[in-house]
Amino acid sequence: NKASVVANQLIPINTALTLIMMKAEVVTPMGIPAEEIPKLVGMQVNRAVPLGTTLMPDMVKNYE
């Protein structure tokens, strides 16, 4: 099973992601793959992301 990106803390709306906000975890359903973490740094979330939430592509602005 591949790990996904999971919020390590509450991430407020429009916050630019940093490494300490994210962790890799095997979850179902899968979200953004953990190997994308370096690419996510500096990208903004378009909603508040609660602690423990799996990051999905539609939660990150301009994620492709």
Rank of each mutant, 00 (worst) to 15 (best):
P33V: 13
N1E: 15
V41D: 10
V41G: 04
P38S: 09
E25T: 09
P57D: 08
T15I: 06
T15F: 06
E64C: 15
V5W: 01
L55D: 01
P29S: 10
A48I: 07
E36H: 03
L55W: 00
A34R: 03
E36R: 12
T28P: 02
E35M: 04
I11T: 02
G42N: 09
P57Q: 08
T15Q: 05
R47A: 12
V41I: 12
M30R: 02
Q44T: 13
P29T: 14
L19M: 07
I37E: 06
P12D: 09
V49D: 01
A16L: 07
L19I: 10
P38D: 04
V60R: 00
A48L: 12
T53V: 15
V6E: 02
P33D: 07
P38R: 05
E25C: 11
I11W: 01
G31C: 07
I20H: 12
M43V: 13
M22R: 00
E64N: 04
P12T: 12
L17V: 07
P29G: 13
M56W: 04
N46F: 08
N62G: 15
N46V: 13
L17G: 00
M43A: 11
P50Q: 14
N8S: 09
Y63H: 03
M56P: 01
K61C: 14
P50H: 05
P38M: 02
P38K: 12
G52L: 13
T15H: 11
N14P: 02
L51N: 10
M56R: 05
N1H: 08
T28N: 13
N14M: 08
V41N: 03
P33T: 09
E64I: 14
Q9M: 06
L10T: 09
N46T: 07
L51H: 08
K39T: 03
G42F: 06
V27H: 03
M21N: 12
K2L: 15
P29Y: 07
L40M: 06
N46R: 09
V49Q: 02
G31F: 02
Q44R: 06
I13C: 14
N62I: 03
T54W: 02
P12H: 09
M59N: 11
E25M: 06
L51R: 08
K2C: 15
E25V: 12
E36S: 11
I32D: 00
T54R: 10
G31D: 00
A7H: 01
L55P: 01
G52V: 01
G31N: 01
I13K: 10
L40G: 00
A24P: 06
M59L: 06
E35Q: 03
N1L: 14
A16E: 09
N8W: 08
T54M: 05
Y63M: 04
V27I: 04
Q44S: 09
R47P: 03
E25D: 13
K2Y: 15
T18I: 05
M56V: 07
A34S: 13
Q9Y: 11
I13W: 05
T53D: 09
S4Y: 07
N62F: 04
K39F: 07
G31W: 02
D58N: 10
A7M: 10
I20L: 12
N14C: 13
P57S: 13
K2G: 15
L10I: 13
P50N: 12
K23E: 05
Y63K: 03
R47F: 13
L55I: 10
N14T: 06
L19W: 05
A34E: 09
G42R: 07
T28G: 11
G42A: 09
A3Q: 04
G42L: 06
M30N: 13
M22S: 01
N1I: 13
L17T: 01
E25H: 11
L10S: 07
A3N: 04
V41F: 09
V49G: 01
A16T: 08
D58F: 08
M21C: 05
V45W: 00
R47Y: 10
V41C: 09
L51Q: 09
V26Q: 07
Q44G: 03
K61F: 08
M22F: 10
E35V: 06
K61P: 10
L55M: 11
G52M: 05
E25K: 04
R47W: 04
R47T: 09
N46M: 13
A34K: 04
V5S: 06
T53P: 00
L10Q: 11
P33H: 09
R47N: 15
N8K: 11
I37L: 06
V49F: 02
I13H: 03
P50D: 10
I11C: 04
V60M: 09
A3S: 14
K39I: 07
V60A: 02
L40E: 00
D58V: 07
L51D: 12
